[in-house]
Design a protein around this nucleic acid. Structure first.
Lengths: 234, 234
DNA sequence: CATAATATTGGCACCCAATGCCACCCGGAA
DNA sequence: TTCCGGGTGGCATTGGGTGCCAATATTATG
């Protein structure tokens, strides 16, 4: 049902299209972008703060930015993605950072330090970061959408862990540790959002340690639980 | 924006409307439902298997079931929710199960056993459960949507943990442990999906233990990492 | 300067999920 | 039979997301 019209501009044969995101091209040639992703992001955040995420439509954002709805979707693949900014680049940063830890740094120390480094923000940016994370963690639609970003984040971590302990990144240990670390990070973030006076860095550090303490010793209970062992119920 | 029209059926004063889900009423009175949630679920799963989740529209499902699209949304709040069946009831089961562990069972043993119990399925249901989890864990849209279910699941766990260790359920330790446990469970599930011959129960058990082993000792590294400590880069 | 190449823009049509509204249908009780 | 409670499903509408394509603006080239 596509391509019904064979009509095409005479000269243009089949040149690969423009880059997905405006401004991502080399830079020379072509019409200059009307806005930028960051600008749109800031603008959208304001609207979200005013009316809430759900009650702000893409049309609202586009209209406020003076662009067409269609153009909005060239800057962000979805409305949800506004909240995450340039996460791909952040991920690359994490990956690069993990490479800098020499092999003699114990695995979980490296993970913990990388987690802290990844979430370090300029002091001036802290209020902004708070709003962003509040939006992400408290808006159901974004809570859901974020799961997809978390997948990518965990993958970076699992790859590092897998390399370190000589297992495939999809094996149980790397995945489990990556998942647990993510959980710890989010728990720390929620603590951070609730208490304005606490340092995110310290919370992350404490959370990683507390997790270990919580597990240490207690998991070495009776052997694997199976059918028989549930006799002592209430 | 409700109740604009003062017109009401003479006799009915302010009786709360019909139950959200057909069949959830006491049973007496009214037209009998055309189908059931389980029936719809099975039917939808077949279509998903054939065409994939994304390429199956709600109209497809409704048409296949011989009901109207509007009726579909009375059985499930959203297309995504088809995949999760009656999760609320499962959650209630988990909550109840957690109450049966006497206080002398160590915390993490209880958590581990409850996790295993929660994910125990009838042998006959295993292939079905596999399909369900495959759908949930491998379909991006569902991966995202599931995050909302996980929130509820974790809350149940965090509440239990909080009670046990005398902290608020929103405190760091309960949240971190709940998050980590969820992560461990999902990692085990993904392992289970990849290896048809493995027992889910065993995987969950192993995962919980492995997590502890992975953390034990390694987290007690140098003191909290801050500015200075990142000198030994690459 | 004219023209070509290139990139961005934005309108239009369209798909699909979701929701409010409401008329209608059906089984049991009065 | 009549009434009532509940289920059904059509209709209209909102809103996110996408393919298509012509218009527009910028730079490079003849």
């Amino acid at each position: 049902m596509r391509n019904q019209r064979g009509k095409r501009v005479p000269g243009a044969a089949g040149t690969a299209g423009a880059p997905a995101v405006p401004g991502a091209a080399g830079g020379r040639g072509g019409r200059s972008p009307v806005t930028s992703r960051v600008e749109l992001e800031h603008l959208a955040f304001e609207l979200f703060a005013e009316r809430g995420f759900e009650r702000t439509t893409v049309d609202d954002i586009a209209r406020a930015a003076g662009i067409g709805r269609r153009t909005f979707f060239r800057y962000f693949p979805s409305k949800n993605d506004v909240a995450w900014g340039a996460f791909d680049e952040e991920l690359a940063r994490l990956r690069a950072d993990l490479r800098t830890y020499p092999p003699d740094v114990p695995l979980m120390d490296a993970v913990r330090q990388a987690l802290i480094e990844f979430n370090r923000v300029e002091p001036a940016e802290i209020p902004w970061h708070r709003r962003r994370m509040q939006l992400i963690l408290r808006t159901p639609a974004l809570q859901a959408h974020s799961a997809l970003r978390y997948v990518a984040w965990r993958q970076v971590l699992a790859e590092f862990i897998g390399n370190r302990i000589g297992q495939d990144q999809h094996a149980l240990a790397p995945q489990a540790i990556a998942y647990a670390t993510l959980g710890v990070a989010i728990a720390a973030y929620e603590q951070w959002l609730r208490h304005e006076d606490l340092e995110l860095t310290e919370l992350l550090d404490a959370a990683m340690r507390e997790l270990a303490a919580g597990f240490a010793g207690t998991v070495e209970g009776p052997p694997a639980v199976r059918e028989a062992s549930r006799t002592g119920r209430a």
